[in-house]
Design a protein around this nucleic acid. Sequence first.
DNA 1: GCTTGTTTTAAATGATTGATTAAATTTTCT
DNA 2: AGAAAATTTAATCAATCATTTAAAACAAGC
Lengths: 199, 199
Amino acid sequence: MEKKEKDISTEEKIKEAARIVFTKKGFSGTRTRDIAEEAGLNLALLNYYFRSKEKLFHIVMEEKFEQFFGMVIRLLDDESTSLEKKVTAVANDYIDMLLANPDLPIFVLSEIKNNPAHFSDRISGRLLKSVFFRQLNEVRPDMNVFHFILNLLSMIIFPILAQPIISQVGAMKDKEFKKFIIERKKLIPIWFNSILNTK
Amino acid sequence: MEKKEKDISTEEKIKEAARIVFTKKGFSGTRTRDIAEEAGLNLALLNYYFRSKEKLFHIVMEEKFEQFFGMVIRLLDDESTSLEKKVTAVANDYIDMLLANPDLPIFVLSEIKNNPAHFSDRISGRLLKSVFFRQLNEVRPDMNVFHFILNLLSMIIFPILAQPIISQVGAMKDKEFKKFIIERKKLIPIWFNSILNTK
DNA sequence: GCTTGTTTTAAATGATTGATTAAATTTTCT
DNA sequence: AGAAAATTTAATCAATCATTTAAAACAAGC
């Protein structure tokens, strides 16, 4: 008759399992059975709580897109911090978040690619015209600011995307890789500055 | 009784269609029917010429991995060119190749991620210990060369991965984007040098 | 403890998809 | 032309998968 309180609700268990499996395997690589199994629940419960695989996916996807873009947008669209502070903040916080969620970038990039409509206007509107853009434009009015922002994001995100290759090549073990990425927190602001000061 | 010469063989038609569909949708997102349709051929022909979806995929995947890694390895493992020449060569040739094959990077990264075993030793062996690595190490013995090579590849590859986002955000139209990427052929060697000269 | 509404389970259903088959057609060689 | 081989087609199979159903288990209020 009424909602009972458990340690964690079935609905939330399903969502959590869906987050894990969808981000790891993508929409088409995920079977609803994988999610039920990951959640330790009966398969029919997925359709009982969420009407379909698509609906459940949509919920997870919106969350993940917000996670991927939200932090970087908030950090870059801050009136109160300087350009330099922004770069170090993004390098520090964003790298930490990506290390904790290594499946996130490829998931977001893949799913936007096979269905750009997923990318809500709510997010896209905030990406352009951030304070960061204005500040960059003051320092280098001669140049397309997209080059710089893409350089920054490239240097942060790409190594995370490339980790499976780096592992497979045997270049680094997982522990080493993490140290390597954390090193970049310090280095990226330095590199970014030298790029910025190159005329 | 014997192989006949046609304008293009059925086998090659299937392979070409498989290249297109697999690189666009990945293994799990591709239905064998999609490939047959793309090739304008009957579904049964796929299993007649290639024994299964997996086998056909494997052929395409090996080709694509070679395309993705082969060029950059050849350019970087050349005894006869200087470090600077290598950077400009990679920026020029690799960007051209990626512009012609925009689906390639995300395909390779995704498929290696969900099945690292796909990544053959033949390729992985060549990636490390290229001449480029040795040359970089001479210039900056104080620093992990992986930082530099990843910076270079990041700046080249990531914007291609991000194109669907850039389009969706409305930041650039397709023509603009291409011009933007081509601009980077000139800029990346400059940036890379300033990174390299930063102590 | 009985009723009522909710949650969970097991089983089934129907659609999709990779793979096979057998017959038909075309090509190749003599 | 005619036999043999290769290619193509349509029909079908078998497995997988998302979704539905119906009944069972459970909780809450009286």
